[in-house]
């Protein structure tokens, strides 16, 4: 049995990784709510965020804020390109939803290959944003990066909530998520809103990737695991609001890292999927009920 300290430590680590899952989950929700598309290329944005940031930080020695900003902007552009080049043509031809979703999977594999060919297949990482640490509370160590994840995560969720509730464009995006036809009938350009949803969700994924890389590493292949975890978090949260998705992510992160301590690293995904199944068994509409309204 692991000691209490080990458990507490794993909870702390779980919150950090869970926040990152939560950000990815919000990305899933933004696109899904605007369009009904589950974008399986979501993990790619996380991977690209970390890879780009590495290139700018370590390769070009840019300051952190600048490197992060450029990386996020570039990944947002990738999101827009995916929407315009792949999703929009299929959408216009009224392709069935499962075909569109499969196409997002193809995009993921394609971008992975492009990354291998251009940036290489080596894992890479960069230092935590604030050197020093970890902070010791008793025997529990809290790395400084966790505070960055917490702070940036809270900031982003706060800004998103403001955006969706208090701005004209944010409200229009929500309108699209509830009734696309009615939105169009009021003059809301639904097509542009879908592009925006991809940009927004790519930017969120990139931010998540930039934040998590110093705690782990990034490489062409992290998109799958992060995408799946973010997806699970989104389902637990019920594909609803940003805070619900974030809560889903934290729950998943905490359970996963506790499972690693108790059962060993090999059980990480077994536990994640078990959590998913249990949640769906007892709360078929997601923990926060968000899946109900779209049934």
């Amino acid at each position: 049995m692991p000691s209490a300290i080990e458990l507490i430590q794993s909870l702390v680590n779980g919150v950090g990784i869970g926040l990152v899952y939560g950000l990815i989950a919000i990305g899933f929700c933004v696109i899904y709510n605007a369009s009904g598309i589950v974008n399986f290329a979501q993990g790619v944005f996380v991977m690209l965020g970390g890879m780009f940031a590495y290139s700018f930080l370590v390769g070009m020695k840019l300051p952190l804020a600048l490197a992060a900003a450029i990386s996020i902007a570039l990944v947002a552009v990738v999101g827009v390109l995916v929407q315009i080049a792949v999703i929009r043509p299929m959408w216009k031809r009224k392709a069935p939803m499962f075909a569109i979703i499969l196409a997002t999977l193809a995009v993921q594999l394609l971008i992975e290959q492009i990354v291998i060919l251009t940036l290489g297949d080596q894992p890479r990482t960069y230092p935590e944003f604030t050197s020093g640490g970890p902070l010791k509370i008793g025997q529990v160590a809290i790395g400084y990066q966790l505070f960055w994840v917490l702070g940036c995560g809270a900031l982003m969720v706060g800004l998103l909530t403001l955006f969706f509730n208090k701005t004209r464009v944010g409200r229009a995006l929500r309108a699209c998520s509830q009734n696309r036809e009615a939105a169009a009938l009021l003059g809301i350009p639904v097509g542009s809103m879908l592009v925006l949803s991809f940009a927004l969700s790519a930017a969120l994924g990139a931010a998540a990737g930039i934040l998590i890389t110093p705690m782990q590493y990034t490489s062409y292949s992290i998109d799958g695991p992060f995408g799946v975890s973010g997806f699970i978090a989104a389902i637990i949260g019920g594909f609803g609001s940003a805070p619900a998705a974030l809560a889903g992510g934290i729950l998943l992160g905490v359970v996963q890292s506790a499972a690693i301590v108790v059962f060993g690293a090999g059980y990480k995904n077994v536990i994640a999927l078990t959590v998913l199944l249990i949640v769906l068994l007892f709360f078929p509409k997601g923990l926060f009920g968000g899946l109900a309204k779209r049934a």
């Binding site: 004209r168 409200r171 229009a172 929500r174 309108a175 509830q178 009734n179 036809e181 009615a182 939105a183 009938l185 009021l186 003059g187 809301i188 309204k293």
Partner: peptide, 17 residues
């Protein structure tokens, strides 16, 4: 075709998009 989860005020505001 209302935005059912939104308030009356928000629905009207979206009308003036």
């Amino acid at each position: 075709g209302l935005f059912g989860e939104m308030t009356v005020y928000e629905n009207l505001l979206l009308g003036a998009y």
